[in-house]
């Protein structure tokens, strides 16, 4: 219940990638963002698929807002215990070193800056690092659950989503859907490319914007915006430009996305 998956509904894209393949590409790429010992909170749906592609020996602890650090595999069969669930309400195993806690502690972790990374689905993400993933005006809104707190608090916010919805770019100049959080997204991963978001924050160790401190200089100027870091080799730079409504810069180190 951290967040709904957003619109991930279309069947097959024009480029012939099946929905399954799109999800696989995105989840595989997102899994590369984690490092040994990270504590990670995943949204429901596509973000959860990231767990399939973690290297076997990598120790990443998954945190769940309903009170479990060390979420293990889904539990099925007769010996499930309804007293141990994940944020989606599914029965789960727990990993060695796991712990249980209450909702307050869950959000001390999430809002308080103690989660290394979060992976969330989105309806829209924009060039300012804004995220919209909880509400479409005029449609039934399930609620934001813990998503707003999580996006504000996590050290790294990774958005995973299909590049387009019904042919429209989901990466926009400015979100026109209600925001989940303002200027918090660090990375956007789609089946076609990877954008880094330059938030222009340049925060010092206390979280104070560099621009607001005496040390601020030309070198830390607030450039901001999206930087294209990787392209799926199935697509060209022109393709990405054509299907992305937000403006972006191309990284000097532009790489092929591993798919």
């Amino acid at each position: 219940m951290v967040v709904q998956e957003g619109i991930m509904a279309e069947t097959t894209s024009k480029e012939g990638l099946s929905k399954e393949k799109i999800r696989e590409i995105i989840a595989k790429r997102a899994a590369k963002e984690f490092k040994e010992g990270d504590v990670v909170t995943l949204g429901i749906g596509l973000p959860t698929e990231v767990t399939k592609y973690l290297p076997e020996n990598m120790n990443v602890m998954f945190q769940s807002e309903n009170g479990l650090l060390g979420v293990g595999k889904d539990q099925t069969g007769d010996d499930t215990d309804p007293r141990v669930i994940n944020a989606g309400g599914g029965f789960v195993e727990i990993k060695k070193g796991a712990c249980f806690y209450d909702s307050q502690m869950a959000f001390i972790m999430m809002r308080g800056g103690h989660i290394d990374a979060t992976v969330l689905g989105a309806l829209q993400a924009d060039s300012e690092g804004n995220l919209a993933n909880w509400s479409i005006p005029g449609k039934f809104t399930p609620g934001m659950g813990g998503a707003m707190d999580l996006v504000v608090g996590a050290k790294k916010v990774i958005v995973v989503m299909e590049h387009t919805s019904k042919g429209e770019s989901k990466i926009v100049e400015r979100c026109n859907l209600p925001l989940t959080a303002s200027r918090e997204v660090n990375l956007i991963i789609t089946e076609r490319c990877v954008f880094r978001v330059d938030l222009g924050k340049n925060t010092d160790s206390t979280g104070v914007l560099a621009s607001k401190t005496a040390e601020f200089s030309e070198n830390t100027a607030l450039t901001g915006g999206l930087i294209l870091e990787e392209i799926n080799p199935m697509f060209s730079l022109e393709d990405i430009k054509a299907c992305t409504s937000a403006s972006f810069r191309v990284s000097e180190n532009l790489k092929e996305m591993e798919i």
Binding site: R111, N130, S135, M144, M148, D149, V152, G153, P178, L179, T180, A181, S182, R183
Partner: peptide, 10 residues
């Protein structure tokens, strides 16, 4: 006082 919801309709 929470940073959650800043910049949103909340």
């Amino acid at each position: 006082l929470t940073p959650t919801g800043i910049g949103t309709t909340i």
